[in-house]
Simulated assay, not measured.
Amino acid sequence: MLLLKSIAFCCLCHELDSSVLFRIIEVLHSAYEAGHIQIADHISFFITLVSRLKVCPENIFPPNDSDATISNRGTFKLLTCMVCSCLSQMGDNSLLFLILERVIMEQLSQKPLLDNAYAMLRILVVLDAKPTRLSEKSIVTLSNFLTGYLLDVVHCIPEDDDNSVGSIRRHAQRYYFVPCFFLFDRSLKLLTLTLNMMGSLITESTSSPSHGYCNRCATDHLSRINAIASVLLSVHKEPKFQHVLSLLRTEIDCILQGISSVKTSEGSNLTTGERHRIQYAFDRIETTTRSFPQQMGM
């Protein structure tokens, strides 16, 4: 529907007041419920919004306070919630998932910005079930994407030793991690493949990373290793995954072996500080594995 496309592009305008944006969505959803809009057109409208509305500034914690005051990130979060709510009211979730799965996978393959990626992952979660409805092909595609997405989250929201700042950043990190946690909980294979991707990413050539998302995550071994350690620890902190990760000891051991390999092969080229950071990442992961039940690691 040409009119709906025109409305969607108007909604992408940053000058549009958020209250007007939300009112447009309410009116269009009412029109859909009254039978005036086809389901395919309505879904296309929602996907256009969450995939193409740009969040500014891209930096989640902008150094300039003035950038924070003009941010539309809060509006985008509300938009994501509203879209998910509307989709969940549109009928059979399994049918909607079947319609949207391929569309979202195509959108994710285009490496959207972090907030747009989060929105589409959350839509998947809302329409998915346990065990997952994802096809085998989508699980493979998604594992490739999530590897880079998770590392990008860590890169964009680095850890901080300051307790007050660190707490805010951990909360922000978890916000972006949560859809992944739901997807991992619904598919052990997805988590397994993602860990395998991380393991191979450690020793992959820094000049040509082939994995998934990685829009902004650093490409050097040192940054990758520390980011992977942070992701693993974040997953392990979730109570539901503490036992699950113990079942994946082999995959985690491969990550540890990869870190050791990098330290050995690049040892002479590393500064003392760099060697310390690699060892710190190794120790963090190894300490986590010590909490696994012994029989699971045998």
Rank of each mutant, 00 (worst) to 15 (best):
Leu142Trp: 11
Lys111Gly: 11
Lys111Pro: 13
Pro131Gly: 00
His171Thr: 11
Val154Leu: 10
Arg169Glu: 05
Val126Glu: 13
Val154Gln: 01
Ile157Phe: 11
Leu151Phe: 07
Glu106Met: 15
Lys111Asp: 12
Val140Ala: 06
Pro112Gln: 07
Thr141Leu: 08
Ile104Asp: 05
Arg133Ile: 08
Val154Lys: 01
Ala119Val: 03
Val178Tyr: 09
Met105Ala: 15
Val153His: 00
Leu150Thr: 02
Gly148Tyr: 02
Met105Ile: 09
Met105His: 15
Val103Leu: 13
Val126Pro: 02
Ile139Lys: 11
Met120Pro: 03
Asp160Val: 10
Asp115Tyr: 05
Met105Asn: 15
Glu159Asn: 12
Arg122Ser: 05
Val125His: 03
Arg169Gln: 14
Phe145Met: 07
Thr132Lys: 03
Gly148Leu: 04
Cys156Pro: 06
Pro158Cys: 02
Asp160His: 13
Glu136His: 05
Val103Trp: 08
Arg174Ala: 02
Gly166Met: 05
Arg170Ile: 09
Gly148Asp: 05
Leu146Ala: 04
Thr132Gly: 01
Val140Lys: 06
Asn163Gln: 13
Leu114Tyr: 05
Val140Phe: 06
Gln173Gly: 01
Asp128Pro: 10
Thr141Gly: 13
Lys130Asn: 07
Ile123Asn: 10
Ile139Asp: 10
Phe145His: 12
Lys137Asn: 03
Ser167Met: 11
Arg133Ala: 11
Leu134Thr: 03
Val103Lys: 12
Leu150Ser: 04
Asn116Val: 04
Arg133Glu: 02
Val165Leu: 09
His171Asp: 03
Leu151Asp: 10
Cys156Ile: 08
Ser143Glu: 03
Pro131Glu: 01
Leu134Asn: 08
Thr132Pro: 05
Leu134Met: 15
